[in-house]
Design a binder for these strands. Structure first.
Length: 684
DNA sequence: TTGACTATCTTTTTT
DNA sequence: AGATAGTCAA
């Protein structure tokens, strides 16, 4: 967003420094400007950069905020700002205070896959679905601040009681491993601050002013952590929008917004209502929809961009037809010259699977597109396995990588052995890999286990040596294939999959990965012009070292001129000139599962989702419904979503179009004439 | 009864 | 794209 004079509400938000402040930032109201300007203001008021904390939910948001801040206040000042996600702030706290909560200094963080494996182990099942269900339930409990005992008390049925029991064993296992999961990154610092005034005071002194972005997405544990951090001084600014709270299903609660004025009576609430994104026609539809929800804080968006095109309401005969119409619309707007780029378009939908039909239609029309969200290549289990090995080669103290590598493929080293090893490494304050070669290891583990660990250690050392001394694409490929053969990875994939085809598909992903890594080891890289460029050869280890950087760059992707396909959830915070809202039907948006009954709260969240979708659009918005839609075997009648009526598109705008006025006048005169005529004929 | 193949059907997702 | 339920054959 271009630098622009702040409006009065934004200025008020930026300059309110002496107490707690809640900024209700409507969609497109320039909240990031407010946050970055406020940081600048805080520096001006004498706060040191290192004492200002800004908390976001995603790494992407944190990075963007840092970029904006750097732009505004310069790299030197920005570098000391504490801008991080809730989770990385948790890591920071735990790294410093780990021992106080019984954590070794080099604790591991398990990702979602690791957690699933531990749960399968702890719960004694191989059933993926069951493990997922436990993971989900346990995570929700943790996000409400419950430990295993609390969970057992609140468990409503046998299913939940079983989950609570698994949770207890899961926690035991985590502490044996010296590991934490994502949820612990918030709850452990909270527990620490609640019980340890010294640690709390220390962190309150470090983060003297706190800014919390997307406050409506906080869960109760995160809110408690914020409360502990800001303490009695209550120097903070929360920025959020109750109308854009769409993550209730994963523990976020707008109760946190209601509680804020109760917990901080001196709270200053500042709504930002001027929108710098959309036309009036679009904002009117958005305001009308969201007005149906009960409000916590009243606000109504407006903009200075004029009425603009009316919101288009489209009806399609079915999914395929809808996709065709989307394509037609893109082509039409482009040929009218209203949209120079494909990147000006987005197609938004409720559920991921809806993307498929659109992909097909776009491919056929040869329109470039990208599907945002969805699983990336590097999220696949087999790729993560191999990345685990490579990470361990690079940094042998990376315990999560160690755990992953040592257990895939299975080599007779189970949780008992690993528990012993972890305890040992915790006691001697070294990594698990280091512990593996300790002289005294045999005093805590049986001979056989120690032998197996040594065997693994030798494999790693040998592999590390070879990776360090192997250069160039061809040699790298040979080395990597040798390694996979040695550890029997292909067999492991084929064995662990019920279906041989699935196993083969996974193996083919592995081969792609080998190809990817070895190409990066150098030799020759062909540029797209066809010209071949000689690159410097790199060792396999060097490539492995940069892998995480390359991954995050690959994830970002170069900006290309493509139509965006994305879920409504993933669209929050983004904007496009032309937005196509697909499948706005009862059952889909609002979504309704077969067995579930719709609570008012659920419906309100769905309505907010619609609101988020509408407010993504800058200049044109098309809302599409299906007259027929596929359900089960047959095609059923599609009922337009109630949200369409709620947009009240037929209602004329406040400032009446002169042509409309004229039309109405004519009608009135005609009516009068009719009455007169009737009176005359009666008189006759 | 079991097993393989096919048809069907998907909520939303970050750390 | 991936899991799962259902179907058909041995």
């Amino acid at each position: 967003m271009a630098a622009r004079q702040l409006n009065p509400a934004q200025l008020a938000a930026v300059h309110h420094l002496d107490g707690p402040c809640l900024v209700i930032a409507g969609a497109g109201s320039g909240k990031t400007s407010v946050i970055t300007q406020k940081i600048a203001r805080l520096l001006q008021a004498g706060y040191a950069a290192k004492n200002i904390g800004a908390i976001t939910f995603t790494n992407k948001a944190a990075q963007e905020m840092r970029e904006r801040a750097t732009h505004l206040i310069g790299a030197r000042a920005a570098k000391d700002l504490v801008i991080s996600t809730f989770h990385s702030l948790g890591v920071r706290i735990l790294r410093a205070e780990g021992p106080r909560v019984g954590l070794k200094e080099q604790f591991s963080i398990l990702d979602s896959d690791d957690v699933l494996n531990v749960l399968k182990d702890a719960g004694g099942t191989t059933d993926m679905g069951q493990a997922r269900h436990w993971q989900w339930t346990i995570s929700l409990w943790k996000n409400q601040g419950y430990n295993a005992q609390d969970a057992l008390k609140v468990a409503k049925d046998d299913d939940e009681r079983a989950a609570a029991i698994v949770m207890e064993r899961y926690q035991d296992r985590l502490s044996a491993y010296g590991a934490v999961d994502f949820d612990d990154l918030i709850s452990l610092p909270l527990r620490l601050f609640a019980s340890d005034a010294e640690a709390r005071g220390k962190w309150q002194d470090t983060l003297r002013y706190l800014l919390v972005d997307e406050y409506q997405d906080t869960n109760s544990v995160q809110y408690e952590l914020v409360k502990q951090l800001v303490g009695e001084r209550a120097m903070f600014t929360a920025v959020g929008d109750d109308d854009q709270s769409i993550y209730g299903w994963r523990g976020a609660t707008i109760e946190n917004l209601k509680r804020l004025p109760q917990d901080f009576p001196q709270l200053k609430v500042i709504p930002l209502e001027q929108n710098y994104r959309s036309t009036s026609a679009i904002l009117r539809a958005a305001n009308n929809v969201i007005a149906v929800n009960p409000k916590i804080y009243e606000k109504k968006l407006w903009s200075e961009f004029g009425e603009g095109d009316p919101v288009a309401l489209l009806e399609a005969d079915g999914e395929e037809h809808e996709a065709e119409r989307a394509v037609a619309r893109i082509n039409a707007l482009r040929s009218e010259g209203k949209a120079p780029n494909y990147a000006d378009f987005a197609i938004l939908y409720r559920a991921n699977h809806q993307a498929r039909v659109f992909e097909k239609a776009l491919r056929r029309a040869e329109i470039p597109y990208k599907v945002s969200g969805g699983q990336s290549f590097f999220d696949k289990a087999e790729i993560k396995d191999l990345c685990g090995w490579l990470r361990l080669l690079v940094n042998q103290d990376d315990d999560p990588a160690f755990l992953r590598a040592v257990t895939t493929p299975k080599r007779g080293i189970g949780h008992t052995t690993l528990g012993g090893l972890s305890e040992f490494s915790g006691k001697w304050k070294c990594s698990m890999f280091e512990a593996l070669f300790a002289e005294t290891l045999h005093t805590v583990l049986p001979r056989r286990a120690v032998d197996q660990l040594h065997e693994f250690g030798r494999t790693i050392n040998e592999l590390e040596f070879r990776c360090r001394t192997t250069f160039g694409a061809e040699d790298a490929r040979v080395l990597l294939m040798d390694w996979l053969k040695d550890i029997g990875y292909e067999q492991h994939l084929l064995d662990s999959e019920e279906n041989e085809k699935v196993g083969a598909a996974r193996w083919s992903n592995v081969l792609d990965f080998v190809d990817w890594v070895s190409r990066r080891c150098g030799g020759q890289i062909t540029q797209d012009g066809g010209a071949t460029v000689e690159a410097e050869k790199q060792s396999v280890l060097q490539v492995a070292q940069t892998i995480s950087v390359i991954l995050s760059l690959a994830e970002r992707g170069e900006e290309q001129d493509q139509v965006t396909l994305t879920t409504l959830h993933a669209s929050k915070g983004l904007e496009w000139p032309h937005v196509f809202l697909a499948g706005v039907n009862e059952g889909l948006l609002p979504f309704k599962a077969e067995d579930e009954d719709m609570t008012p709260q659920r419906l309100e969240e769905e309505r907010r989702l619609m609101y988020v979708g509408i407010t993504r659009a800058r200049t044109t918005l098309a809302v599409s419904t299906l007259r027929r839609r596929k359900k089960n075997r047959e095609t059923v009648m599609g009922i337009p979503s109630r949200f369409i009526a709620e947009m009240r598109l037929h209602e004329s705008q406040t400032k009446e179009d002169p042509r409309e006025k004229l039309k109405k006048l004519r009608e009135q005169m005609a009516a009068k004439a009719a009455v007169t005529a009737a009176a005359q004929s009666k008189a006759d």
